[in-house]
Design a protein around this nucleic acid. Sequence first.
DNA 1: CGGGTTTGACCGGCGC
DNA 2: GCGCCGGTCAAACCCG
Length: 258
Amino acid sequence: MDSHNSPKEKMKLLQAKLEHVRKQNENLRHLVKAMNNQCNDLLARIHEANRTYSSSDHHHFNNNINIGGVTAQVPPVPNAKQSRIFVKADSKDSSLIVKDGHQWRKYGQKVTKDNPSPRAYFRCSMASSGCPVKKKVQRCMEDKSFLVATYEGEHNHDVQCSSLGQSSSLTNYCSPKSSIVHCPDYQTTDSFGSDVTLDLTLSGSNQETRPPRNLMQVCDDKKKIEEYVASLTKDPSFTIAVADAVASSINGPPHRPM
DNA sequence: CGGGTTTGACCGGCGC
DNA sequence: GCGCCGGTCAAACCCG
């Protein structure tokens, strides 16, 4: 086909491709930088929320999280079977709903002394089947755009995916409107003890909803992803494929029928 | 009518 | 012992 191409022309073509890849790389760096800035902003807000905790129940924060080279602190949970998540939610939305993939039944609400916002008490809807998990949800006192959910216990069943959309009154699905900052602190499991998952779903972004996830599942998935990434980055053919894909995207992305 | 939510009452732990 | 406070119960209510 291109047998008329001399080695010099091939070299020029490759150099041009390389230049394109370099430019693309630079663009990606800018993107990463921008994302890092957004991440910093979110972490600052998380930090603010955490400070609320430290002042309200005298916890000292020892757990660090690191995202994109940025470190933030999260509150340790006194009870080893508890975990806390901070959920970005509309401050105008008065419902104390943290959609985490499980079905919950509200069994009480109470205004606590240190926070004017009411605290809602939920039990897992599978409690009748022996699931011991409970959660408490309260709006963050200083930053009302955050909900703080405290989980107690572990689910002894899978996430009820099959029921999605069946019961509108249940808090059963991940909200596209909320950002979840998840701080699991499971019993004597070092691999999870200081691990934090940030679901940086930007508020109001019009992204598709995600499948619901059990908290332990999230950690397992993260491990798996890390293993995949490690194995892929070690694979030179993968690097070549990525470079190829970037080059082809620069030369004009193919319009594939969806 | 069944299942979930609301909300006032009740209970138990804790500090004074 | 008393009062405060967080957590839970359960009857009434709401909604599909």
